[in-house]
Design a binder for these strands. Structure first.
Lengths: 222, 222
DNA sequence: ATATTCGTTGACCATTTGGTAAAAAATTGT
DNA sequence: ACAATTTTTTACCAAATGGTCAACGAATAT
């Protein structure tokens, strides 16, 4: 899932080699730092420390900051896309959407840093992933949107512009990762991961499924 | 609405003076740059250029980068709080919430950069506004949350943890400012402001009011 | 008109930053 | 054991960055 029109600038290592393992460590460290500081604010020396190595050593694995940032984005976007699950017209609308929301929320819980990297990139105007958004994501929304329109035609969902439906779902789920520091400050919880996500999931699911007027195919009509 | 326990580090200018006007220009320029790059990534020389002055000249208005950033946050948070409108227990739930959502969406439309500054700060872990969130915002949510609980007791709203209600509203409205580059890429609109916000507002309002099970006090029961 | 305050500039500086080069150390293949 | 390869370190550099300072120009008040 490489970023569009982008040659693979990343060094290749034989699997099992120490290089491959370290490259992975760098990627993880970079995700952490980029997620908090964005591209411009991240210091590659800080990433190196996080990865437990010196700066020149890090530069041995990724030629420069830009390449490293792109590598992080590729990694993180593939996660994002993988989480999406399958949409089939014939699947049950209520079940499918419930599943999708749960999946997205789980992603926020498991990979909050990944979520924040994407958020930071988008807030910065998506300088790097613009093409990805305009092509891949556009296609994805168009394709899945057709499923929603089908549901709406069958009276299984309120007539709402599909793209916006996804915007709302993404916003409502990713906010728990991206804005963790805010939500944590307001809820005053000790352990964010264990205390927040479960209730958030059921709650967001409840509000959105009802709000979108989603019906189960085999449900007894109201 | 100063940031907690923070002395006012900002130079004071006589109203009408050229200094006052320029300080405002710097603040606006800083909002723009900080909103895209965050604190660490912003270059004060870039802010100065945006404000049409030299770097040392900017430093004449704000002693250093940190002070400027704090000033932007204060400015932007006051906007955020002002937009909130009034909540009264006796007001009509459906109307009040509809109004609130519209107001928040309008804020995203009018001041997207302000929204992005806050978003960037929160994603960075809220290093500067942490106290504000833990005190002022906490109080606000607690107080307004009581209103929602009252509604729920009267059967005018589904029983949903109030704090999360606000999280969802904020997420769904601010996403149109913060993630403009993503939404714009997916919708492929020419003029984002005029083409997106109207439908987004009615749509988010519809989904959320229905999802939250909000009823009008004087409405005929279902 | 002129002294005083306000606003602006250019030259400068210490530190930080992304990145390089060469060589040393560790690992691997034979 | 030893050559080849891979990984790490030390020393370094040019550019960028936040910030200072003294001096100069513009407004303002008396």
């Amino acid at each position: 899932m490489p970023l569009p029109t982008d040659v693979d600038r990343t060094k290749q290592f034989r699997s099992g080699s120490i290089g491959e393992k370290n490259q992975q460590k760098v990627l993880a460290a970079a995700t952490t730092v980029f997620s908090r500081k964005g591209f411009a604010g991240a210091r590659i020396e800080e990433i190196a420390r996080h990865a437990g190595m010196s700066k020149p050593n890090l530069l041995y694995y990724y030629n420069n900051k830009t390449d490293l940032y792109r590598a992080v984005l590729v990694d993180v976007l593939s996660l994002w896309l993988d989480s999406i699950g399958e949409f089939h017209v014939d699947a049950d609308p209520l079940e499918l959407m419930t599943h999708y929301i749960a999946k997205k929320m789980e992603l926020s819980k498991l990979y909050p840093e990944a979520s924040r990297v994407i958020a930071t990139e988008i807030i910065s105007g998506s300088p790097v992933i613009e093409d990805f958004l305009r092509v891949q994501l556009y296609d994805w929304v168009a394709s899945k949107g057709r499923v929603l329109l089908q549901w709406q035609a069958e009276g299984l969902m309120a007539p709402i512009e599909p793209a916006h439906v996804f915007f709302m779902i993404w916003a409502s789920t990713q906010t728990y990762a991206d804005f963790e520091s805010q939500i944590s400050a307001v809820l005053r919880v000790d352990d964010y991961q264990t205390e927040v996500y479960d209730s958030a999931t059921s709650l967001v699911t409840e509000v959105l499924t009802r709000g979108l007027g989603l019906k189960s195919r085999n449900a007894v009509g109201h």
